[in-house]
């Protein structure tokens, strides 16, 4: 069984079936979830991360049913995420953004924090060190004290990834990580995704940049109108007539 298994997931918004009976597995490695705009990709992500509850179907992670759990509990189980429209804590420092991502793994209570008990101080010191290491990992070393709101767009993307990694997840789900990045930033991102994978963290990502998807993903799942129309290695997907018709064909000559 794969690390993450989706089984017959469905979600309707009003009369529209945003996701309709979608099943697929996410094995170790890098999996891409692709499809035209409005195909239901982000809805699938939100169903995985607990931001919305499915009408039907189950989400199984590491052989446990996590369907309908609160998002913070799903993070604690080992799935961390980034958002399509970057959502940082603008009033916090860069390092505090990362530390917020590590919160689910911290134990100190209110009393221990007020009394500054040794265990609490050790925990804070350790999490700070780990946070600085994550900043270095994503290429933001030395920026820890800056306000998050002061970062450039590409840096914000990387900070969001560092915040997700700070939760020490087994799976990260990245919603359009290359969105709004220029060519060299996208190339850096490919390298970063590979290094995340090299740490033994499984990656599931949504992306419209086909060059990026074909380069970093080992497997692809294709959605159209809330239904899965194909899944397999990138080379096979590239040749799949249904996919070409639904998505790649339409996208020809379209840089998005």
């Amino acid at each position: 069984m794969s690390l993450l298994e989706l089984q017959g997931l469905s979600k309707r918004f009003g009369g529209v079936a945003a996701v309709d009976g979608v099943s697929f597995g996410v094995p170790d490695g890098v999996t891409g979830l692709i499809g035209p705009n409005g195909a239901g990709k982000t809805t699938v992500f939100n169903l995985i991360t607990g931001n919305i509850r499915p009408d039907r179907g189950t989400v199984t992670f590491a052989d446990t049913d996590i369907t309908g759990l609160a998002p913070h509990r799903i993070v604690a189980r080992g799935i961390a995420r980034t958002f399509q429209a970057i959502r940082l804590f603008g009033g916090l420092s860069v390092l505090d953004n990362v530390l917020a991502g590590a919160d689910a793994g911290l134990r100190a209570g209110l009393l221990a924090s007020v009394l500054r008990l040794p265990a609490q101080r050790r925990e804070e010191r350790d999490v700070r060190e780990a946070g600085l290491a994550e900043l270095e990992f994503v290429g933001l070393a030395g920026k820890g004290a800056a306000p998050a709101a002061s970062l450039a767009h590409g840096e914000r993307r990387r900070l969001e990834i560092a915040r997700a990694l700070a939760a020490r997840p087994r799976l990260v789900v990245l919603d359009e990580p290359a969105g709004g990045l220029n060519e060299s930033e996208t190339a850096d991102l490919s390298g970063l995704v590979r290094r995340i994978r090299a740490r033994g963290v499984t990656v599931l990502l949504i992306e419209h940049d086909m060059g990026f998807v074909m380069e970093v993903c080992e497997r692809l799942v294709v959605l159209e109108h809330g239904v899965k129309i194909a899944e397999g290695p990138p080379e096979a997907i590239r040749r799949d007539p249904r996919v070409i018709e639904a998505y790649l064909g339409a996208a020809e000559g379209d840089p998005a």
Partner: peptide
């Protein structure tokens, strides 16, 4: 402070 800045992101970052 994370909740103050973005509650959805705070929950999604693992904060109860």
């Amino acid at each position: 402070r994370a909740i103050r800045d973005d509650e959805v992101a705070a929950e999604g970052s693992g904060i109860d």
